[in-house]
Design a protein around this nucleic acid. Structure first.
Lengths: 187, 187
DNA sequence: TCTATTATGTAGCAACCGCTACAGGAGTTC
DNA sequence: GAACTCCTGTAGCGGTTGCTACATAATAGA
């Protein structure tokens, strides 16, 4: 592996951590270079342009997070939608996934403006999560699992959106309300 | 009313329409000035700085949209949460509110980065919608209406997020899945 | 009519942006 | 040792950003 490829790898890893920690606030080439402990000149030697830099870093983050999900709920397990919703809500509001969810919301915000690579990455992420969620849904055969997964992801992502505009106490109450909405067993 | 105040009003109205139409893509002072059909120099004569320009325009949008909501579901009407969810989902995915929802998501994305005025405006918007939604919830007394309203808004906003990353066909299916999740009468 | 305030255009500053030309060092191959 | 490729620092270009200094025009009040 050439030095260039090694550096690409190092930089990608560092930037992934940087973005998770700080979000999309400091995404100028010079800031990214500083975060990766290289010069901006070299950043554009390792990657072709800024878009590719961000694409590499966010792809890395995506890979890490779906890997994390796999351990949280292993293959083969199935849960009814209501339980899965509550589990996902709890999971994504935890300290480690929270950073990711927030970043994802920022990425979708950028995607809404048509900014690459976020349009592509956001769509891929949604697809990945849908693919992870769908087979874990315990629903009657014939149900559109992908669509249901989409709805659940909407809810969970929406919680992150609301969290950004809320106090911590409000969010606790919101989670409880959610539990009230979905937790009750049908009588 | 001074000329300055008149122009402030005109510019605010035009920029509100501009932002609804194009999102937060073109928010440089020069672009905004062009959209408002004034010079950038005058934009900073009517307003103190860029933040105040955007604050005025987004506040105007917020005022319009809560007014629109009031007509959609007048005061005094009450619906059970499940029906309200489906109604809200339908309402916000309609052609006229969709522009607003998308813009709101972009604003929350900016708020996530700590950008003013979006932090403030997003929080105010969420508060406004909660205040609109809470009294329309037909729930047992003692329920935390505000929290439940927050959860519902999370779902509805989440749908907009997912929509940004999805095809139109996928979104139709997602809405149907949502109806399946909430529409069934408990047996 | 003189003066003071308000309104508007011209021009440009300093900072930042993504990106690149150029030169030189380091190592490898013949 | 010469030629060559890979790597890296310096320096800067052309563009955009938010914002401002300055001069002038218009209007109002005395």
């Amino acid at each position: 592996m050439s030095i260039r490829d090694q550096q690409r790898e190092r930089v990608t890893e560092r930037l992934a951590e940087h973005l998770l920690a700080t979000g999309l606030t400091q995404t100028s080439l010079r800031s990214l270079a500083r975060a990766a402990a290289v010069s901006d000149r070299m950043l554009l030697y390792y990657f072709t342009d800024k878009t590719e830099v961000l694409a590499a870093a966010t792809a890395r983050i995506a890979a890490h997070s779906v890997a994390g999900l796999a351990t949280a709920l292993p293959d083969g397990t199935k849960l009814p939608p209501r339980e899965l919703i509550l589990l996902a809500a709890e999971l994504t509001s935890g300290p480690e996934m929270r950073r990711f969810m927030r970043l994802w919301v920022e990425m979708i915000g950028a995607a809404a403006k048509g900014e690459e690579p976020f349009v592509t990455i956001s769509a891929q992420l949604l697809g990945g999560f849908k693919a992870w969620l769908a087979p874990r849904l315990d629903v009657p055969s014939g149900t559109d699992r992908a669509a249901l997964a989409g709805a659940i992801i909407a809810l969970v992502d929406g919680l992150t959106l609301v969290e950004i505009c809320s106090t911590e106490a409000d969010m606790r109450a919101t989670h409880e309300a959610l539990a009230g909405l979905f937790g009750k067993v049908q009588k």
